[in-house]
Structure formats: structure tokens, C-alpha cells
Design a protein around this nucleic acid. Sequence first.
DNA 1: ATCTGGTTTCTGGCATACCATATAACGAAA
DNA 2: TTTCGTTATATGGTATGCCAGAAACCAGAT
Lengths: 228, 228
Amino acid sequence: MASARLDIQPIEESPSLKSRTYDALKAAIGAMKIYDQDAELRLDERALSLQFGVSRTPLREALAQLEQEGLVRIAPRRGIYIVRKTKAEILEMITVWAALESMAARLATQVATDADISSLHNLVDTFSSAALGEHMDEYSDANIRFHAAIINLSGCKLIADITNGLFMHVRAIRQRTIFERDRARRSIVDHKEIVEALEARNAERAERLVREHTLRLRDHVEQFVQLD
Amino acid sequence: MASARLDIQPIEESPSLKSRTYDALKAAIGAMKIYDQDAELRLDERALSLQFGVSRTPLREALAQLEQEGLVRIAPRRGIYIVRKTKAEILEMITVWAALESMAARLATQVATDADISSLHNLVDTFSSAALGEHMDEYSDANIRFHAAIINLSGCKLIADITNGLFMHVRAIRQRTIFERDRARRSIVDHKEIVEALEARNAERAERLVREHTLRLRDHVEQFVQLD
DNA sequence: ATCTGGTTTCTGGCATACCATATAACGAAA
DNA sequence: TTTCGTTATATGGTATGCCAGAAACCAGAT
């Protein structure tokens, strides 16, 4: 609506080339099937700087950040490589995830509003009825959103940040995860129980359910996913 | 001892200026009392590059990494500043710490050897007898080593990495933490109970004790530490 | 054909110069 | 003295060029 006064918005300062390059690279790596046999893991600074239309300096700073984040490895005068996580590392990530999300569930029982908790039903019920065998992708997305929602309910920004970082890596092996029908069905039951525990404000139970749920995923990956 | 053959050692490649600058900067920031009133939080690229005897390029890459790690904030054409964490952020860090270390305790009950767990006694008993009032610094160090030891016992490298990163920030406010005698005494009792639970391979109890122990620290900081 | 030493090329590390903008310093007008 | 427009300076952002080491290539010797 119009106003008699100037409605001033703060000028959003345009992100630097460095940060934009960083985002673009991260997205590109995220979209890549790095665990495919024929995946090209080698990156070339000069080629990338041409493709992005940016000089090597901001590109290198972006790469340095990605290296610290563990997405690439920079070998001096050897090359820059996208890192493939080992299975052990993936398992550790899922373990950390379990620790953080279970703490998030605990926090959620203390700080989330009833309305917020109720909104979780939308994410669970959608797929209780859906034909599971055919919508594994959608199920997978809803699954992720459910877990992200719990983390948000905790109100702990740091937990959200860390798990987001982990997700980047874990997502890459999602395509390799065998989502059998039984696992998906079990998962939905778990989710329902988690919501119930949250609604009952039962911190211990919510924490335990979330932890066990995620640790089951870890065991499943350990047993059935082959990476190398 | 001498040998008839050349005993060749692999040449360790010298760390890049970037990584050395990174380490030096991180150490310098860590050693700084950044929460003091008169702390100089502003950094100057050119001045630093002179002090380190390095050009701006590797220095900037080091700074970019520190920025992503949350230690500094780079404001384009404004300056580079060491960040002071807010109290809320510190509390979140301690919460995450609690989540991770309690998971570490759980893992430790599953994977640590009896000998490893027994070695924790050294870290606990040292200070049961010590005069608490006078050796707060030593107590604090032993305290930290105890918690680090539990995390190591879990065998989870990722938990160790993340908590190390958190420690960097939390350490800065340690000097502001009031370690009353009673808290220290209580802490030692907690530690003993934790070791007992680990020895009994009681995952649930070990996890709970560690979590509650660390969350008590969080509540203590929330109540008694003033940052701004 | 294979091995060996040299040479060329490729690639990341680093230094430097320049740019754009935020901030400070300044000075003239009110 | 205060205000406001101008100029100067400071500071991070970016581009570019050179360097050193690693890998690939090549030619001559065996």
C-alpha cells in the first residue's frame, strides 16, 4: 500500500564475487553425483575462473573456504579435488546428526508452542496415506523436511547450522540409500511417535525416539550402503 | 642406530603461508582477551601482512577461513573485526557441546577399552584432593582435559573436531566464569559418577550424566556470566 | 623395447597493482 | 559556530603476472 512518507528499505549490499562464487561452487558440487564411478572430481582454477567469468583471486578464496568445510581438497601444485567422504565419515556424520537432533527434540519440548508442534502433523500425515512404493523421492523430501522442522522447533540456530553442513555431505549418498518399503513404513511410525512425545512435552522420550530413529538410519547405511 | 642402507624419511612438505598465517592468526585471537572493555577488535589487512611478513593474498585467504569459522567478520570497505559472541550464542554452543559429549559418552561405553576408561581416573583423582580454592586454573585445565578425554574415547573424530571449534569460542569467556568452590566440588562428584557409569558400560546413565553436567554449566553461565 | 635424464607444460602459491566505496578531513557558506 | 558539500584517505575487492614444484613428455642410450 502507498504511504504519505518515503518508505525506505535498507540497501542490500551486493554480495561479493567471492561469496557468489562460493555459493555457485557449492551448489554445483551439491548437484553433482560425486559417487558415480566416472565422476570428474578434478577442478581447475583457471578453467573455473573462465567459466564463472571471475578472476582467480575470488575463486581461490571461495575454494579455500570449501576446503575448510571439507568439500574439496587442495593439493599444492597437484590439483583441486572434490572429496569423497568415506563410509566411516558418513557414519560419523549421521551419529552427530543423531546427537544434535535428539537434543533439538529435547529443547523443542521446552520452547516450542503447541501450534508449532501441531504443524508437524502436516509433514507426517501427508505420507502416511501416500503410495509409498512409487513416491520415494517425495517421501525422502518430506522426511528431510520433518527432521529440519524439529531442529527449527528447538530454536537453536547453531544446531541448524551444523546439521545443514552435514546434510550437504549426507545428501550425496542419498541416491545410494536403499529405501525399502518396510523402512519407509517404519520411519513413518517413528515420526508419529516423535510427534506424540513432543506434544506430550516428554523430553526424555522425544529425545530417545529421535536418537534411536536416526541411529537406525546409521546402522542401515552401515549395513547396506557401499561407497568405494 | 646406523644401518647399511639409506633410511629415507618422507619429506614433509612445508605448510603454505596461508595455513601458517591461519594458525598464527587463530592462536593470536585465542590468546586475546576479546571480552575486555578496551579490547582492540579491529584488524588491518595491510598492517597484518607487514607484521607477518606475508603479502595480502595468503593473509586474506586465512581471514576468509576464519570468517567462515565465525571468528572474524569482514565488512567490505569497513574493516575486519574479531567477533564477540553474544551470550545467546555461547549458550547455544554449550548446548551443542552437551549434545555431542553425551553422545560421545554413549559411544564410549560401546567402543572404549577398560584400560582407556580407567585412565580417566587420573584426570579426576588429581583434583579430588587438591586444594580447590587456590588452584582454579589447574582445575579448569584438568576439567577441560577430562571432557576432551571422554570425547576421544568415543572414537568419533567428527565430534572431536566440532567441539574443538566450539571450545575456541567458549574458552574466551572462561575467565569470566565464576568458579565458586561449590561448583568445582560438585563438578568433581559429577565426574566421578560419569566414570563409574562408563565403567559399568551403562550407556543411558553415562549419557544422561554428561548431558546434565554440561547443561548445568549452561544454566550457570546463563545466570552468572555477563558479557555485554 | 626399455630405461634414464632432461625439458616442457601444467597448476597452485604468492606478490603486487589498481579499483570502488566508506569514512574522515576539510573548508566555505550561512 | 554550525552545516553541508567537496576532497582526501583508508580499506577491502579484484585482476594479473610471475614463481616453484609436479607431472607429462621426449629423446638418446642401452
